[in-house]
Design a protein around this nucleic acid. Structure first.
Lengths: 193, 193
DNA sequence: CTTGTTTCTTAAACTGGTTCAAGTGCTATC
DNA sequence: GATAGCACTTGAACCAGTTTAAGAAACAAG
């Protein structure tokens, strides 16, 4: 198991020594998942925080009418999962699936709890991670209110160019909060110009 | 200066001893603000994280067309401010104003940085704070996509009943992502039934 | 008390995005 | 190489929410 890229990712925010790196690595559970595989399912309490080493995952919410809403894509270097379920140990409301063959690391909640307890550096790492993610989520809320769907699509393509190769358009539409039909129209308008 | 309620708030998540409590309290800068006062303005880099001791604040974004979008209300016990500006020390894109006469504590960024450095407990406190806030923001994104404006209004009233006394309807409309005119219609529909 | 200012409401015309239904194209599998 | 299944597109009817404009109600300040 090669944990060098995840350690490099973490070392962007904190500086781990040998002992900390080894301990952290020992907690990770590596896994390979195929396209379409579920990593988390609605109703089951999430036991792991998920780190994407390669490939692409998506987390989505299925509403009362049975419509899926993509809350997040996660590609190399991202953490993902149903944070509510993970944090409060309650049945998940999001599902997480692989959009392509992917390799991931699972970090079990109990281990993460002990980890941050024992090494304040990791407490810091996750504080920074959540703080940054919160900023991104705030931006997204504002953007959903103030920009048109076309602007949001343009922004999405610029911000996450690597995702277009993995993600079917219908999921991009869902992430943008529109129907696949309307995304289709937007795309046509763009090529016609 | 009485810091007992903010300390009680923090002690819900971590357990501070006398020394830590005193040190933390010594960093806080108390302030009274009147209705309409600005605590942060667009374009000015945010120096403080803001804790609301009493009263009510709102943070909002003004888009290219000059329309305000409320990102958050903050009442007793909440932290607020432009997190992006605060974290990365860049000019604020949000403004923060008092909706009523309020008392707040400012926690300067430099002090907060030193605080979490010196006391891992505070690192944990803010990790938990951001983690919880992130969960709330994820829920809000999903809700904006899957629920109608009327459902969102109902949910808002149930979740934050105390806010209705402070917050003009036009700001509630903005928070919900609709126009004041449409909120007016929703309210009428509700009373007619 | 009254005058100006802001908030809230109402109504009509309008639009960004949805819904429904049908059709095209891809690729997968037997 | 037929059949099936899914992703994507197209178009027409439709609707949730906006825009514009105006009036009513609440409020603050002299």
């Amino acid at each position: 198991m090669n944990t060098s890229t995840i350690l490099a990712q973490i070392n962007k925010h904190i500086s781990l020594d040998e002992r900390e790196s080894l301990h952290f690595s020992s907690l990770l559970i590596p896994a390979k998942v195929k396209q379409g595989d579920y990593l988390e399912k609605v109703g089951i309490t999430t036991q792991n925080f998920i780190y994407v080493e390669s490939g692409c995952l998506m987390s989505y919410y299925t509403d009362k009418k049975g419509v899926d809403h993509v809350i997040q894509f996660a590609t190399t270097g991202w953490w993902t999962g149903d944070l509510h379920s993970f944090t409060r140990q309650q049945p998940a409301v999001y599902s997480t699936r692989a959009l392509a063959e992917s390799t991931v690391f699972y970090l079990p909640k109990t281990d993460m709890d002990q980890l941050v307890d024992r090494y304040p550096k990791f407490e810091r790492y996750f504080r920074i991670l959540f703080q940054n993610s919160l900023i991104t989520h705030q931006d997204r809320i504002i953007q959903n209110f103030s920009d048109t769907a076309e602007d949001r699509y343009e922004y999405f393509r610029q911000k996450y160019p690597s995702l277009e190769q993995y993600v079917p358009l219908k999921y991009i539409a869902s992430y943008l909060g529109i129907t696949p039909e309307f995304l289709s129209k937007i795309r046509r308008r763009k090529t016609e110009r």
